[in-house]
Design a protein around this nucleic acid. Structure first.
Lengths: 222, 222, 222, 222
DNA sequence: AATGAATGAGATTTCATTCAT
DNA sequence: AATGAATGAAATCTCATTCAT
């Protein structure tokens, strides 16, 4: 009888997304209950279903929208950059900066993939692949032109992404370092990391190169 | 599924650990139910309580034992190594190798910290700090001696750990590359990454160094 | 599914009745949700309340209107018929024909009585009693005049109604038999069934006739 | 903490069946809640799941077990009966008697078929077909030997079953009539009903006989 | 007369945990 | 050390109904 207080109208969906991001980031998807979420939003838990169709769909939408935005902005950041070093520097700068402002989205998009149902999982992994490919192409170009040296491009791609993404685990705005310092620290590591130089001999491939490292299916391929 | 006929004897605890590792790795702690676990082990869920006291305690023990073992073996791997470059190479080689054989333990110890109750969380974070400090010390030594160059030691420490740990996300035995190649690929990235060289200027510290980057409390300090 | 654009005007009530009949027939009253009903009609579920006051009232109206129509048409069908056999034949023919065209209404009126609230239930049962009485009177007249022979009029009344109503469970237009054949098949069974003939001895009444067979209250008198 | 009062051990399943039968009979499957059921049994609703796997499965088991028992006992009742009239009389006597003692099971098995999921539905309909076939065979035999006369065997089969089953709607033990009287009343109707005699002309088949009356799929063929 | 968002209750089912046997 | 049955809480989701717009 009569609407009580709490969030109304079209703002509710936005409130759900925001609270959902926070709760999933803090507790994880499985551990977040829709009751918690509803309480945060200020509605009854049943009311959530006027805006989302399932809990799973909420996760999916949050991740998908994030990755799409990420891709869109990456392409903008790379626009006009020439040469592998410039491109790599731009990639690192963009990635780090973006991850500092979208910490939660990024964290969830990386850690909750396993919570996606197969169909959703595949869609997201395809999008993520597009992002990874941008980096792989930059590395390939650099190696081809002799500007970069890596043992294996696939491994380097994953390692660099992992290195860069790691900061979501510790970054908090207002910390000791400026944004610029953090970006610089990562640029140094990555650009030096792929610089040609006296280090271990080139890797031995066990057999003809196959794309199976790339596959990166569900952990343990369930 | 079921084993002989209601798993008996002292092997049950071992089976619980093994199955628990696998299930938490695959589904996450919150999403793993003790019924699943019991089914995997071949007992009724009530029987688990002859071996563990709570679900939380199982997680705690798995993580704690893993980190202790990790530390023990790290120290052995570093024994006798002289000079920062040698030490760093040993650290990388050990870390990567170990992570290839204990993929699940490593993954869980990184991703399920947030599922630990505060008391347990603190104990684990303290242990993890010890591990991180080994690397930080190596880097400090290298920087001091002019062999390494990094923008910020804290950031470099976390970034390198993140880089190295990333392989749990894609590594599967029997892939395209030999273990040695994978180790080499990581060594190259890390050792080059900290090598002195012409890269961006040193970072500006916003204010007097404070330990808050290190703190790395529960995400957002729940 | 959706109609033009949010079903308008006075046709909506008719659409609700039609869709309601179909859904209750198919899934049962309790299993039909007003959301389903609204979707079928092409409106939001809240809009139903411009036309009905409650779900229960919709059921009641559907059943009441059906029985009233049934009675009205029965009386027309019996008009002018003379003699019990003629009347019984007319009753059977009408009942079967009507049930073939109003399959859903008939089925619901028989199977969803228990879903009526007490007040509604009583009103409907009273109406139904009027219908049953028409048949009981025909049988009584026939027995009195020696044209029919039954063991017990009450039992025969219920049994014949049950026999006739059974066809709602299997009848589908366009089947193997013509309408006329189906009517004929039922006429044969019923008229033969009450025909005098060499069959088991007359029944023993346990005690003085009481009306409790007639009562036919809620099953088990809830 | 500590088991409270309420039904224990292996008796619980029996209590669930009994209470389930009663509640489904009274309210219908969809309208019966597992909370109600649990309350009736004297346990928490979650505890039901130690004995059943889903609500649907409970319904299925109740119906399946009933029909199996029905078939078993029918065959026993028909054993040694010779000639269609004798067999038909035995069939009627058995059916009516059994329905008087298993009123709820019978009612549910007839009225809740639509609540079965497709797979379960098919299994039950197959069993029910076996029962119907017993009657159809008796009628066929009688017609062949000239002892019976019906317009259409399929229609007669369904009509007789409907006639006989109708008594679950009104029968209550302790009523006006003895069991024997009730049996006799039905025997008279059925045996007379199929007796050869002067009644309407034989039915016209619209086209070559096809088995589609038999099909009797889900109402309206969902 | 329709919408869309809300309520509060309740649905089925799952969960970690307990405990007599 | 294992079972099987129980608890009580909580999970996700659906429901009939209301009402401002």
């Amino acid at each position: 009888m009569a609407r009580t207080i709490g969030s109304h109208g079209p703002k509710t969906m936005e409130a759900i997304r925001k609270a959902g991001l926070r709760l999933i980031f803090e507790h994880g998807y499985a551990a977040m209950s829709l009751r918690q979420l509803a309480a945060e939003v200020g509605v009854q838990s049943g009311s959530l279903y006027n805006h989302i169709s399932t809990k799973q769909e909420l996760l999916f939408v949050l991740i998908r929208d994030h990755i799409n935005e990420l891709l869109r902005q990456l392409d903008r950041a790379l626009q006009g950059k020439q040469g592998p070093a410039d491109k790599l520097r731009a990639f690192v700068a963009f990635h780090v900066s973006y991850h500092m402002t979208k910490k939660r989205e990024v964290f969830i998009a990386n850690s909750e993939l396993r919570s996606l149902e197969p169909k959703n999982y595949e869609e997201i992994v395809a999008l993520r692949g597009a992002y990874e490919r941008r980096l792989a192409e930059i590395l390939t170009e650099g190696v081809t032109q002799g500007e970069f040296e890596v043992v294996d491009i696939q491994v380097a791609t994953f390692a660099i992404l992992s290195l860069l993404t790691g900061l979501t685990a510790w970054y908090r705005p207002g910390g000791r370092l400026t944004k610029e310092a953090i970006v610089a620290a990562h640029e140094k590591l990555v650009l030096s990391g792929v610089a040609p130089g006296a280090t271990p001999a080139r890797a031995q491939t066990k057999r003809a190169p196959s794309p199976d490292v790339t596959a990166r299916g569900r952990p343990e391929g369930g």
